[in-house]
Design a protein around this nucleic acid. Structure first.
Lengths: 229, 229
DNA sequence: AGTAATAAGTAAACACTGTATATTTACAGT
DNA sequence: ACTGTAAATATACAGTGTTTACTTATTACT
């Protein structure tokens, strides 16, 4: 039996493979992801997967892109739930959505920002569009602050010209924004990522800290530091 | 030949195994760590390693403890290179040492704060002493600020009583400190970790940001926010 | 309608991995 | 000299990603 009847086949096998992969990642964690285990669950043989993904890394890349897209959706939706002129409100909404997504899908967060897949080296050129979009909500709000003259960057370091190249790359995927706004967004991003990643990885609890209050405090700190008035 | 002559044996095999492991981690990354590859390099067979470590996870745990210890040494040395009354200077010195260590040993940083080993679940009770010590330098400086009345915590959230239990655990390994100091240290830690981890993981470059200037800016931000005067 | 081409699966095998078990043997203590 | 233990090897098992060869359902073309 080399090929089953059309009727017995799984309709959208490519999607079914990714779904099974997410299911396994949610249950056993990203490092335990196994093509053979996916095949077992779908009742096919492992090499059949190679008809849809050239290798395991390609599957992981597809998962990462999907995760970034979902991550971006949440933040963009959060931003758009607050009126455009309320910059501080939009900023806070994005911050809350950021942590919310990470806590809802901790394994996806680790998959994106950790490197929990043995031997996997992410091809940046493939993931950049979706990862840039996942940050575009924050960047757009910072840029909005800058245009409105409400961005406090008195002591912010000058951005050097040497990075303009990758900045151009950003523009095509993340939207128009001044390079200053982009850099400020990076710093803000690093702050929320700092807390969230320590939380997700379980590094905070043993030291008696809990994320909730500290995270709100950090969001407030960001507002005080970067928003004028 | 079941057991080679004493003279032909490797003297401190336990240490040699760890060294070979670090060498491989530095070269191929933590996820590629393989007992058989270590054995090949030491010209022994893989099961021989089981005489020194009950399983691969135990080896990884030993590596993590060593890394934490080295990490802590750097920060404590940096702190003690500045006079005790110069709180801001000590804080900055620790911050620079933190990033310095991470950039000198990026794979060790990932090993500690990521989860790049497939299937590895770190036993917190074993790694806590060394990980607590690696943060003790920062905590001691924050505590010094508090005692000197120079810690700015006007808007800092109240620490809830429910975490006092793990706080007690901290004390025995990380040194005496007020729970407020510990929480402030956590926030500071999350900020430096945010930038450093994004740098190490290679998530900043594609967006045109470089760590140097941003990191110094963040250290300055921390000083402005938490140190009075 | 008949036939060739392609697509989508299976089967078997290869080179890895961590680990368990049994066996061998060097060495220390009595 | 004998015994017991410690430290290694040899072998084997189950798991992994991946490659190759093969089979056959479906599609396209004449």
């Amino acid at each position: 039996m080399a090929r089953p009847l059309r009727k017995k086949q799984i309709p959208h096998l490519q999607e079914a493979i990714k779904e099974a992969a997410w299911k396994q990642i949610a249950e056993f964690g990203a490092p335990a992801l196994s093509l053979r285990a996916i095949a077992r669950e779908l009742k096919i043989t492992a090499p059949a997967i190679y008809n849809y993904f050239p290798d395991r890394d390609a599957l992981v890349t597809a998962l990462i892109i999907d995760a970034f897209t979902s991550f971006g959706d949440w933040q963009i939706a959060a931003r758009d739930s607050v009126s455009e002129d309320d910059h501080a409100g939009r900023m806070k909404a994005i911050g809350l959505a950021y942590r919310n997504w990470a806590h809802t899908f901790p394994q996806r967060y680790q998959l994106i920002f950790g490197t929990p897949i043995p031997g996997y080296e992410g091809p940046v050129e493939k993931t950049l569009p979706s990862s840039a979009r996942s940050l575009s909500a924050l960047v757009s709000v910072v840029e909005g602050l800058r245009v409105a003259g409400k961005l406090n960057v008195d002591t912010f370091p000058k951005v050097k010209a040497e990075y303009k190249l990758s900045f151009e790359m950003w523009k095509t995927h993340g939207g128009e924004a001044d390079i200053l706004s982009l850099s400020v967004a990076m710093v803000i991003w690093s702050r929320v990522h700092g807390i969230v990643s320590l939380e997700i990885q379980g590094n905070l609890p043993p030291f008696g800290a809990k994320g909730d209050a500290l995270y709100l405090y950090e969001l407030a700190s960001i507002g005080r530091q970067f928003i004028k008035e």
